[in-house]
Amino acid sequence: MTEYKLVVVGAGGVGKSALTIQLIQNHFVDEYDPTIEDSYRKQVVIDGETCLLDILDTAGQEEYSAMRDQYMRTGEGFLCVFAINNTKSFEDIHHYREQIKRVKDSEDVPMVLVGNKCDLPSRTVDTKQAQDLARSYGIPFIETSAKTRQGVDDAFYTLVREIRKHKEKMSKDGKKKKKKSKTKCVIM
């Protein structure tokens, strides 16, 4: 069974824990209790493949930012979460993405942009803004509501699919490099 290491990042209060708990335990946590770091595991079937999701729910508070490099190193894919009623959390996505790329030393890291709290009427981040940002990053965008469960499975499952595509691409690139290195030079 394939294991996928997913990391949920975003500013404090955007609903990272609520999304994760909704996926794992099928219930909505409405009281806000700032996370330092929590880890969850769940076995699911995605596109006919049974897999184990190892999900790291991270601290959004700035005082825990020193811990970010460590979990970013171990993560295979990242859910970059903002709240649709919090423009600052949307603007912060850029910083999370840049930090992930720096730590992973790669421009090509599996990510999904997630606009959470889409059940709320007080939207300050337009869907088109988020779609445009995701398009500019070359990553999928999904709106979710941890409260109603809308888009929750889709967000995590899409990230797994992005990781699969990335692994497939990397193995193809690896095979191309191996083929090239088999060419021999004969000096007579």
Rank of each mutant, 00 (worst) to 15 (best):
T144F: 15
Q70E: 12
T35H: 15
D132N: 07
D126S: 09
H95N: 14
Y40P: 00
T124P: 10
C80E: 00
K182G: 11
K176G: 07
L159I: 12
M67V: 06
V45S: 09
D126V: 07
M67F: 06
V160E: 11
D119Y: 12
K178D: 10
R97V: 15
A134I: 07
H27P: 00
L133M: 05
G48F: 02
K117T: 14
A155C: 11
Y40Q: 00
L133Q: 04
K16T: 14
L133D: 04
M170S: 13
M111F: 11
D30L: 10
Y4H: 09
G174A: 07
G10A: 15
V44S: 05
D108V: 07
G48M: 04
V109K: 05
K182F: 12
G15A: 01
T124L: 08
G48R: 06
K182I: 15
S171M: 11
R97T: 12
M72W: 06
E107C: 12
D33I: 00
K172A: 10
L79I: 14
K165H: 09
A134S: 09
I46K: 04
Q70I: 07
T20M: 04
T50L: 11
M188Q: 12
D105C: 09
S17M: 00
T74I: 05
D92H: 01
D69W: 01
K182A: 05
K165M: 07
Q131A: 07
I46H: 08
Q150Y: 05
D57W: 00
I93L: 13
Y40N: 00
K117V: 14
K169S: 13
I142Q: 06
D57G: 00
K172L: 08
C80S: 02
K42Q: 04
C185M: 15
F90H: 03
P34N: 06
S17K: 00
S122F: 07
K184M: 02
F28K: 00
T74K: 11
D154S: 07
S106E: 07
D108R: 07
T183I: 04
L79V: 13
V114D: 00
T50G: 08
A11W: 05
E107P: 12
Y40W: 08
A11K: 10
E143I: 02
S145Y: 12
Y32M: 09
G75I: 05
V186Q: 12
I187N: 11
K176Y: 13
V8I: 10
G12M: 02
V81K: 01
S65P: 02
Q43A: 09
V112S: 00
D126G: 08
G48E: 08
T124I: 08
E76N: 15
Q129P: 12
I21R: 08
S122L: 09
F90S: 12
L52D: 02
A130P: 08
Q25H: 04
D38K: 00
A18D: 03
G48W: 03
R68W: 02
Y71Q: 15
A11Q: 06
N86R: 06
M170T: 09
V7Q: 03
I139V: 07
T2L: 05
V125Y: 09
M67K: 03
I163W: 00
A11M: 12
I187S: 08
D47V: 02
A66Q: 13
V152W: 15
E98F: 02
E168W: 03
M170C: 06
M67Y: 08
F141G: 02
T144I: 14
G75D: 02
S136H: 12
V45K: 08
V44N: 10
M72A: 11
K42H: 03
V125F: 09
A18F: 00
Q99G: 04
P34H: 14
Y32C: 05
D38I: 00
P34I: 15
V8D: 03
V103Y: 15
N116H: 14
Q70F: 15
A59Q: 02
I139M: 06
D173G: 12
L113P: 04
A83D: 15
L133S: 04
S145M: 13
D33G: 13
C51G: 04
T124K: 09
R149T: 12
T20R: 00
R68N: 01
D57S: 00
N116G: 06
A11R: 06
D173C: 12
E107G: 10
L133G: 03
K16R: 15
G75C: 15
Y71C: 15
I24D: 00
K180N: 12
T183H: 02
I21F: 15
V81C: 13
V9L: 15
